[in-house]
Amino acid sequence: MKKTSTRLADGRELVYYDLRDDVVRDAVDPRPLDPISTTSEVRRDPLLGDSVAIASHRQGRTYHPPADACPLCPSRDGRHSEIPDGDYDVVVFENRFPSLADDSGRCEVVCFTSDHDASFADLTEERAALVLEAWTDRTAELAELPHVQQVFCFENRGAEIGVTLGHPHGQIYAYPFTTPRTALMLRSLDDHRAATGRNLFDDVVARERAEAERVVLETGEWVAFVPYAAHWPYEVHLYPTRRVPDLRALDDAARTEFPQVYLELLRRFDRIFGQGEPPTPYISAWHQAPFGDPRRDAFALHLELFTIRRTSGKLKFLAGSESGMSVFINDVPPEAAARRLREVASA
């Protein structure tokens, strides 16, 4: 992998990640951009104890542009985008409309490919491995920022999810706090340790592997399963078989196997609902241990992949119980979801 860092016209950082070592990245962003002005502010909810980012400047962000005006495509034929070069493998850059900025954190965009009409599932294993290297490198870089406590790499796919740019891409949020979901996991981790003397993540994975009914696929380095109490209609959790706190700690064997495993999961998601269906909308989210927490080594890196589509032509909406009280109601039994995801395995 070759890494080349540069700056856009308004001062934001952009990083190219290339498969070939001989690639030269010297294109300059010629756009007359004004310096970025953000209004991002993190406020704490006194009742729930969680944090909310207030970012009014995001009202003006790019919204469903036509393909020939996509800001994530390479700059070509006289049209200048967020990526100055005429082609790229993987690119990461600071978001022009960040939810978090300055002391409130940092938001980055990850472009998986220069092909506007592709998806992550279309990538080669070599290119998927490069994305993993980019996620890992960004986690390492952002961990060095003094105000960052947790790094979250994720992908939203599909208009149903709320995606406003069709180009295949993901995002990275560097939070100045431990997120509420992670805090709940850490609390459960503490409770389980106090009650049993064992690690909660290890016991969860061991249970799923032993019962096997909800396991979707397993290799020497990774295991993917539908969790016992899945919140979403089709939800898969992917764990390395050796517990590590974050992406930086994955060993070479796990990195080598990841592209094959992850691409297979994404391709199965696209086959869940049968031929003729539009691409399955999904969220893919890496859960990494917060920095500086004494329980870091007890936390388990894992990826959660889920869709809001519950059956052909129907979505799972977060209505009264889910949105009002955070109590999920799942219409698809986890065992049935796992069975369907095994049925659509690649031949």
Rank of each mutant, 00 (worst) to 15 (best):
M1V: 08
K2S: 07
S5R: 15
Y16E: 01
Y16S: 13
Y17I: 05
R20H: 13
V28Q: 13
L33C: 10
L33T: 05
S37E: 15
S37T: 12
E41T: 12
L47Q: 15
D50R: 15
A55N: 08
Q59H: 12
A69K: 15
S75T: 01
S75C: 02
I83W: 00
V92W: 01
V92G: 04
E94G: 14
N95D: 09
S104K: 14
E108K: 13
T113Q: 06
S114E: 06
S114G: 05
S114P: 07
E125K: 12
A128Q: 10
A140E: 14
L145F: 05
P146V: 04
R157A: 00
I161K: 10
V163C: 10
G166L: 06
H167N: 01
P168T: 01
I172M: 02
Y173C: 09
T182E: 02
T182M: 09
L186S: 11
L186G: 10
A195W: 03
T196D: 05
F201E: 06
V204R: 12
V216D: 07
E218N: 14
W222N: 12
V223A: 10
V223F: 06
Y234N: 08
L238W: 02
P240M: 08
P245T: 08
A249R: 09
A253M: 04
R255H: 09
L263D: 05
R267K: 08
F273G: 04
F273E: 02
W286I: 03
H287G: 07
D297G: 12
A298P: 02
L305N: 10
T307H: 09
T307N: 08
S312E: 13
G313Y: 14
E322A: 07
A337Q: 09
A338F: 02
R340T: 06
E343K: 15
